[in-house]
């Protein structure tokens, strides 16, 4: 029984490990990699442009999706509630809205490929698609 519990724990941790995410950017984007601090800045709209001046558009995923959970917990490192409060505050004090939340990988890929400054995240088993490229995030 005890062994069974350990096996399940292992499987579940694997499953969690399996729900990691990949960041994609527009294929024309010359940036090879970004840091996690940059990811936070981009998401929270503290930085609005890429180094080359292209307007940055961050695409979020719908709440409740595993990708978003992973994104919030591993990259933004805030509770969803805190994030909601943050955006309410932003709407009042800076006028910024929370990034658009997309329902699926395919739509994320579609929108990232449509905007030159687009950035989004997809599930870990994403293999790549035309118009986008996977960007490495350092310091996870």
């Amino acid at each position: 029984m005890k062994l069974l519990f350990l096996i399940m724990l292992f499987i579940s941790s694997w499953a969690i490990a399996q729900s990691e995410i990949k960041f994609i950017v527009n294929a024309s984007n010359p940036v090879p990699s970004i840091t996690n601090e940059q990811v936070q800045d981009f998401y929270l709209k503290r930085v609005r442009v890429w180094p080359d001046g292209i307007p940055l558009r961050f695409f979020d995923r719908r709440e409740g999706t595993p990708e978003r959970k992973t994104f919030i917990s591993q990259h933004i490192k805030k509770t969803p509630r805190k994030i909601d409060q943050y955006w309410i505050g932003q709407k009042l004090f800076s006028g910024d809205s929370a990034p658009t939340q997309l329902p699926s990988d395919s739509l994320t890929v579609a929108l990232v490929s449509r905007f030159a400054g687009g950035i989004g995240y997809v599930s870990g088993d994403f293999k790549g698609a035309t118009g986008v490229k996977i960007i490495e995030v350092k310091g996870e």
């Binding site: 009042l92 800076s94 006028g95 809205s97 739509l107 579609a110 929108l111």
Partner: peptide, 27 residues
Amino acid sequence: IEKLSEELLIAGQYAMETKEHLRKTQI
């Protein structure tokens, strides 16, 4: 449907941007 959603989302992006600038103006 998927295509339409995509287009709608893109338009939404611009709408959002417009609103953001208007809100910044108000602030």
